[in-house]
């Protein structure tokens, strides 16, 4: 499949992780990952559309249906999250959900961090109602904003030339 034995350096790291956890830690990790996702679901489902009501495990997928009615798409909400100090969720995947917002908190988030994220998502939902333009033009706090991807692809500049 590839030369030599594979990405051995990654094996060492993965084994260190398993040893640090042990059977109890691995189980608790899974439980916390599922707990976190369900917590987010519970705290956001009144404001964001849940296209599938089936029980969530480690991630929850909302859609931008309600916000899209105000002209704001999942990609805009994602960019606005950056202004609140978070990395966005996965945008537009899976394809079966139109305007997907796929949130996987993992087990590594404290309750405080989760609540901050939830507050941010709720604040953005409010902004969508009150000042959609603010969300549609996000992010406002970064060095560069809304890079021109079309231009990048039309005339690719893939290296520096002196």
């Amino acid at each position: 499949m590839r030369g030599f034995y594979g990405n051995v350096g990654m094996f060492i790291r993965a084994l260190a992780y398993i040893l640090a956890n042990g059977p109890d830690g691995l189980r608790q990790t899974t439980e916390d990952a599922v707990l976190n996702a369900n917590y987010i679901r519970r705290k956001l489902e009144d404001l964001y559309e849940l296209p599938y009501k089936t029980a969530s495990m480690h991630e929850v997928v909302f859609s931008d249906k309600r916000q899209a009615a105000r002209g704001v798409k999942t990609g805009d909400i994602a960019k606005r999250l950056i202004d609140y100090g978070f990395h966005p969720y996965t945008v537009s995947f899976p394809l079966i959900v139109h305007g997907a917002m796929m949130i996987e908190p993992t087990e590594s988030e404290s309750l405080e961090e989760l609540d901050l994220f939830i507050d941010a998502m709720r604040a953005i939902a409010r902004e969508v109602e009150e000042s959609p333009e603010l969300v549609k033009s996000a992010p406002h706090s970064t060095r560069v904003s809304r890079l021109d991807e079309v231009a990048a692809a039309r005339k690719p500049v893939l290296r520096w030339r002196g």
């Binding site: 260190a16 978070f86 990395h87 996965t90 996987e104 908190p105 961090e113 994220f117």
Partner: peptide, 19 residues
């Protein structure tokens, strides 16, 4: 730096002892 809720990518803590 903070929560990285990128679905499907499992952006969990990367323990330093691994490194």
């Amino acid at each position: 730096l903070g929560m990285y809720p990128l679905g499907s990518c499992t952006m969990k803590y990367n323990p330093r002892v691994n490194e």
